[in-house]
């Protein structure tokens, strides 16, 4: 008896939480470094197809040498009939009043040129080198992809990228 109950109840000692902020900060910094924020939230539905051995675009994004455009059916289904074959374009960071506006392919030239005009001063790339990345829905008709190519060719924006979801096994 005497071995276990020594002198009644003692209060449990408080756990020292002073290193908790350090741990949380460490996690915080990890996520801050690993984060690449989304350019914009598209108002078209895009399910990207799968593909292997695609090139990572992170380096181009960091140098802001890439523009994204989304090709899919409008989330607001009532608007679908306004667009060719029901597929609309959503352009990232448009300099127009309504950021959620959807476009046909004929808006691409102005968008590209506007974006190129307002490029960051440290960017040295010419318009030919700025990549235009198409994030298209898997059901999108390829004809529209080629319409986009034609528009880009006309303004000498000669780099195009077809986005996919990469399923390459890491090695």
């Amino acid at each position: 008896m005497s071995k276990f109950s020594k002198g009644g109840k003692k209060p449990a000692p408080g756990i020292n939480t002073s290193s908790l902020p350090d741990i949380v900060f460490m996690l915080l910094f990890f996520f801050m470094v690993a984060t690449t924020s989304k350019e914009s939230d598209p108002t078209v539905k895009v399910t990207q197809p799968m593909g292997t051995r695609a090139q990572d675009l992170t380096a181009y994004k960091q140098r802001s040498e890439i523009d994204f455009l989304y090709l899919g059916t409008p989330r607001n289904t009532a608007r679908a009939e306004q667009f060719k074959m029901g597929y609309a374009l959503f352009l990232d960071n448009v300099a127009q009043p309504d950021p959620g506006e959807l476009y046909n392919t004929n808006a691409i030239k102005r968008w590209k040129l506007d974006k190129f005009e307002s490029k960051p001063t440290q960017m040295t790339a010419t318009i030919e080198q700025v990549i235009t990345c198409i994030k298209a829905d898997e059901g999108a008709p390829s004809g529209i992809i080629f319409d986009i190519r034609k528009e880009l060719q006309d303004i000498d924006a000669l780099k195009i990228a077809y986005a996919v979801k990469d399923n390459t096994n890491a090695n």
Partner: peptide, 16 residues
């Protein structure tokens, strides 16, 4: 706000 999946794409040249 983190999206972990990186943007991947096939880069191609458009003829002049």
């Amino acid at each position: 706000t983190t999206t972990m999946d990186r943007d991947k794409a096939y880069i191609r040249d458009i003829p002049k």
